[in-house]
């Protein structure tokens, strides 16, 4: 193989400048290579992404029904899963009910209901929230906890996304 073959492109048609046999082959190989990369890469991506899709489908739930939750004593709370994330159902001492996400808006820890001080506290960095509204009261949390609708029924409590 001589050097001149390497450095000199031979035009297929002298009239059309810039479109060479070598150039065509280069793009054809690149295109076929890309097609193979996609044909291999796409199944692998979907394979690895399977649980993500499943978890996203679970996270998309609109409401959760909690059987027997209406028997929750006053001044106590129940942690349940709304979709994939923890949430709190609180039965206040004044007999009102609240449902909030239990994920702290600061760094994502799971918050706890403190019945003595009637506050929601996050033990990770000391953030506090109002248990009735979810409003962030003190500490680092930047935003309130998201509230859910609570629908009472005989024998169950249904928590709905607002």
């Amino acid at each position: 193989m001589s050097e001149s073959v390497h450095t000199q492109d031979l035009p297929m048609d002298p009239e059309s400048e810039g479109f060479t046999r070598r150039g065509f082959v280069k793009y054809a190989i690149g295109g076929v290579g890309l097609a193979y990369a996609c044909a291999i890469g796409y199944p692998i991506y979907r394979y690895l992404n399977s649980p993500v899709e499943e978890s996203m489908a679970m996270a998309a739930v609109k409401e959760v029904t909690l059987p027997d939750a209406d028997k929750l004593p006053k001044g106590s709370a129940l942690v349940f899963k709304f979709g994939v994330k923890p949430a709190l159902l609180i039965h206040h001492p004044d007999d009102s009910w609240t449902a909030l996400t239990a994920v702290c808006t600061h760094m994502g820890c799971t918050v706890a209901y403190d019945p003595g001080k009637t506050k929601i506290v996050c033990h990770c960095h000391g953030g506090t929230y109002d248990p009735k509204t979810g409003e962030n009261l003190s500490g680092p949390p930047p935003r309130p906890l998201k509230k859910f609708d609570v629908v009472m029924a005989a024998g169950s409590v249904t928590v709905k996304r607002i």
Partner: peptide
Amino acid sequence: YSIHFGWLI
């Protein structure tokens, strides 16, 4: 049967 393309891998 349930993971996408798992049968293929």
